[in-house]
Design a protein around this nucleic acid. Structure first.
Ligand code: ZN
Ligand code: ZN
Ligand code: ZN
Ligand code: ZN
Lengths: 157, 157
DNA sequence: GTATAAATAGAAATGATTTCTATTTAATAT
DNA sequence: ATATTAAATAGAAATCATTTCTATTTATAC
């Protein structure tokens, strides 16, 4: 189905084109390095570490500091443009999800693939917190860790 | 209601009494230090950092190393006797929940209070991962971060 | 263009967590 | 009780992912 592939690429570029707007909305300047970080993440179906992103940035810029990568990833994540992965190894990983609507992720602990889980308990949870606990929700984490289809087959052997 | 208080204490000691059994089930030796860590966590309604637990341990033992605290907390958490908190500041915190059944937590980012959320999407999620993604679930995180009743009132001012 | 605040490079520091080895201890079998 | 053995521990030291710092550069608004 070449149509699907073309379609996917078009929608990708639509997302890419919107990054400057998204950045400005967050009061972040539209710098070449910010856009490059987003472009790098756009190309991936797996979550990446700051150091790995730095490695890819070094191919595009002759001067690029690791702190810049860390800072930008944190800002982009804070602004909900990218998402942070809660890895059991407690290291930082980031992922850019093309799916704009609120949802959560299944992450593969082996190959790092990320897949969408079209399920969110937010409404029920917010209700329970509000009525029963009388608290104020700031954020919620829902993440499923495991082995993707391919990796679970491998470990079957 | 003094009855409730007594009842609560009795149920606590029932849990306490079961720790040696739980530890043996996990092939962990029943050491005074393990039991003390559990006793310290039992007394708390808030999550504690390893360093804070170490501080309390130093009152009970004249020789007690911080690595011992870290190691034990990790083992107990791995064995599901205690639960790890996913704090936005990315530091380690642990909590011992008296509620034995599977559930999740609302954590206060201000006073560190932990409250139960009697809701879990595990069944739905497992089903979605199994049927749609054909993956294997290893673990899932569901945690709600916010301000508890008391703390959200304070920040209203 | 100019002004200004934000972003960045690069070096350096940080500090929570982990690793290491010698010693001690709990559990089990005499 | 005593001996045996594997697990647990103390304390010092190392690790290293992440953050901080300051001078310089750059995006943006006028
Ligand atoms: Zn995989
Ligand atoms: Zn997604
Ligand atoms: Zn609170
Ligand atoms: Zn609980």
């Amino acid at each position: 189905m070449p149509d699907l592939a073309i379609c996917a690429k078009e929608s990708d570029s639509i997302i890419m084109d919107n990054f400057p707007f998204s950045l400005r909305t967050l009061n972040l300047k539209v710098t070449p390095k910010r856009l490059a970080i987003l472009a790098i993440l756009m190309e991936e179906t797996v979550y990446l570490s700051p150091e790995e992103i730095w490695g890819k940035m070094k191919r595009r810029f002759k001067r690029i500091g690791l702190p810049t990568v860390y800072r930008n990833l944190e800002e982009l994540s804070e602004g909900n443009i990218i998402s942070k992965v809660n890895h059991p190894n407690r290291k930082l990983y980031y992922y850019l999800c093309k799916n704009q609507s609120h949802h959560h992720h299944f992450i593969c602990l082996s190959c790092r693939k990320v897949e969408d889980i079209n399920f969110c308990a937010a409404k029920k949870i917010n209700k329970e917190v509000k009525t029963k606990l009388k608290g104020k929700v700031i954020s919620h984490i829902l993440q499923v860790n495991g082995l993707c289809k391919t990796c679970s087959k491998k470990s079957d052997i």
